[in-house]
Design a protein around this nucleic acid. Sequence first.
DNA 1: CATCCAATGTTGTCGCTGTCAACATGGGGA
DNA 2: TCCCCATGTTGACAGCGACAACATTGGATG
Lengths: 238, 238
Amino acid sequence: MSPRKTTGGGAAPRRAYHHGDLRNALVEAATELVRAGGPEALVLREVARATGVSSTAAYRHFENHRDLLEEVKHHALGMMTARVRANLDAGTPCADRTDEALRRIRASGQGYVDFALAEPGLFRLIFRNGHRGEPSDAPNAPTGEIDMPPAVNDESYAVMSDALDELVATGALAPELRPFTDVALWAAVHGIATLLLDTSLAFLPQPARAGMIDRTFALAFKGLEGFRDAPEARSDSP
Amino acid sequence: MSPRKTTGGGAAPRRAYHHGDLRNALVEAATELVRAGGPEALVLREVARATGVSSTAAYRHFENHRDLLEEVKHHALGMMTARVRANLDAGTPCADRTDEALRRIRASGQGYVDFALAEPGLFRLIFRNGHRGEPSDAPNAPTGEIDMPPAVNDESYAVMSDALDELVATGALAPELRPFTDVALWAAVHGIATLLLDTSLAFLPQPARAGMIDRTFALAFKGLEGFRDAPEARSDSP
DNA sequence: CATCCAATGTTGTCGCTGTCAACATGGGGA
DNA sequence: TCCCCATGTTGACAGCGACAACATTGGATG
């Protein structure tokens, strides 16, 4: 089945000592485990077993369990951004710049939630710091820069962030409110995805879950609409 | 130190064979472990060690690892609701019914985030389904009822939910938009808390983090403001 | 083409964990 | 007073991550 780098054409008896592409095969198998059972399901020995290799073979390609997990995380993150981008390209662009920016925000957010619900195991892995037994905590670390790109998934986050800049450019978003609004939108989208996965909301029938997503998006976009003018102006009309 | 159920007043030599309150002591020690290192740090043998008891003693009070974890979860959830309630009672009530409802929503949300940032280990445990190796997935399970209380923490959630009902009563929230809006608000609050804990946002300096929380709340409340009228009316003025 | 070495894979082992069965203890009801 | 069962202990097993020592090659070098 899998393309082994065997010398002759013999079937099974003479197993190739060197796998040829073990690293990728391990990542693949590990990804499958995480997809099926979440981050906790990634067991080194089982990955080796699934790949048909000895228990410690993985140590030639990864430092330790954590290292392999990190690799799978990157892999999963790639799948996620791909999904977001696909969802982005699926829709038809709007002529109006503001509408187009809003469309992109909505599309990327929808793709984000779609991925989370379609691949809960991978999604849980992506948002996970703190390995087995580690303190998993590093508050106020030495990052220095405030305006660093704070995203986890650079691309899909950049889409939304750029769209917000575009809203500022078209006058649909008050410049004073631009900072941190990307994070606020991200929070809404990430929050509904997480809640639908990790709380009792997971047990609700599909229509209710869809309604919750819609309402969350509606709330966020209504809020964004309200961000058109700076908060200082208390009067209803100029 | 700890009140053992010894017969005499002797100091140490004659250890009481029966601990007397082992169950609570175990939960306490386990909670401390989770507080320090997150859910993964809960190790049965270490809990026993910390309590000064044999490795398998816990099995007289809990079915297994998962069972103890679940108990700690309940314990942690109690702490969280306590924090929310404290934050709620700390503020001064508003005279206006609408303002008071909004104040309660904001206060409970703020308490929610405060707890998450103050106790990341416990917070992570609370929002966690899927044990070691389990599928951790149960979509569209047999819950039947749609309008069941979907919350994890009944009390603090009920506060917000009741406040939304109050907003409908005072005319500050369109009745058509009332369903699922509780979840949408919860998503925003839960989202920002989760992001600040589990992503690179955790490394940003405090002012930036505070700004993100503020902006998230502002976005949510602006959205709530926009929920005053039903979405069908497209005109700007009646 | 022959040689050898470093990359790659294996075996054996250690300490740790969760869990079970069998045994020990003793407090409180008959 | 006695004895039973809840409570705690000891010993063991399998599975895990990780390391050290060994085996096997493929490809660069002569």
